[in-house]
Design a protein around this nucleic acid. Structure first.
Lengths: 209, 209
DNA sequence: CGAGGCTTCCCCCAATTGAGGGAGGCTCAC
DNA sequence: GTGAGCCTCCCTCAATTGGGGGAAGCCTCG
């Protein structure tokens, strides 16, 4: 697969300092080779095209979307393993990244040895994930998904809109909005719109930026 | 002040990779010397005691609190300049950090030259701040502060509690809760509790973690 | 000492929200 | 083709919420 026995690595993060740091942490190991860096989705895909890395260290918060980059890379280069390296970002993105075929998840703030062990593990084809994240991911899989309409309504709630406004926005009746909200409350197990909005933000179901 | 003419720097961040990256970015310049690193408030203060840095690169999201660290350092070593280096964290913490005496604010993701220019500038006694942050900070200063009671009520709103529950929590009447909320809505210029909660989170007035 | 801010409570009233149903049409998978 | 899930709308009713006031006691700052 790779020309030598070195593990070829692509680093994707929009923070230069972090890219430099990760590169430096890996530079000490002769069997690890950082072949490229990218700061956004498009650049990550271009770098894969050019360098065919074995492992991609992927931040989820990059322009263009880390999840989108993961999907694209896994589709076109199935042999390439993607290791998510990010500060905690809410369950939803992690879940989507794993669905997209990411092989593992590590928190920033990790030590060199944790990072290297993670890279080696996913290069061997193993999965890497902190136990608490894995647990949350299982819960997340069990939890019923929100339908697309429910998601729309929820994101408008987070946008601070009233039922009446949401009805206008989506060109449906206010009664329908209330129906969606009822099931959203059930699925998120909350009692009112404010809690729903906060849960949505907390779990990364909708983003604030 | 410093023994040579090198600028002595302390890096405070809980992410090892970022500390390594920042150190590497500064290592190339002979007039900059990273004298210590710390990953939390207590460690930052200890490092100041031991190394008396000229400039502290401070992340706001560290165990113990970056704002708290800034306050402590500025109080005990007024000659030490604090440069906040963080991803965007909501106006409130930035505002508090500036109130606490931080000399500048830079976003992670900066280039080496931006970082170095920032360090040199604050070492000369200048202030450093991206214009959009500065604008928001001025607006923030103009905006009326929430009283401590109003803050309590707001944070309970974010905790997802009803007026009745808040009244019980604070041992006051429900009518008082409603009065506080009315003024909170005015001060945040929002129309309901959900928007208030979201604004509070967005601006870092209350934290979700 | 007077103005203004904070805390606490009160009134009334309109609007919104949430709960508990039911129901038709639609698509998609088994 | 039948059931499941989704989207849409309907009803009623209770509770909560928000807007408009007012007002008292308290403290602080000028």
């Amino acid at each position: 697969m790779s020309k030598s026995n070195r593990i070829r690595i692509l680093i994707v993060d929009d923070h230069l300092a972090l890219r430099v740091g990760l590169t430096a942490m890996l530079a000490a190991r002769p069997h690890l080779l950082v072949v490229a860096e990218a700061d956004k989705t498009a650049g990550a895909i271009a770098a894969c095209e050019k360098h065919h890395p074995d492992v991609v260290l992927m931040d989820l918060r990059i322009p263009g979307g880390g999840v989108e980059a993961t999907i694209a890379i896994r589709q076109r280069w199935p042999a390439t393993r993607v290791l998510i390296v990010t500060t905690y970002d809410g369950d939803e993105d992690i879940h989507r990244a794993i669905q997209a075929g990411a092989s593992g998840y590590l928190l920033k703030g990790l030590t060199s040895s944790e990072l290297i062990a993670g890279i080696e593990a996913i290069h061997r084809g193993e999965k890497v994930m902190p136990p608490n994240i894995a647990t949350r991911h299982r819960e997340r899989v069990l939890r019923k998904d929100l339908s697309s309409r429910e998601l729309e309504v929820l994101s408008l709630i987070v946008a601070g809109r009233s039922n009446k406004e949401i009805a206008r926005d989506l060109v449906i009746g206010e009664e329908s909005v209330k129906t969606y909200l009822k099931t959203v409350f059930q699925k998120l197990s909350v009692a009112d719109r404010t809690q729903a909005a906060i849960e949505a933000i907390r779990h990364g179901i909708v983003h604030l930026d």
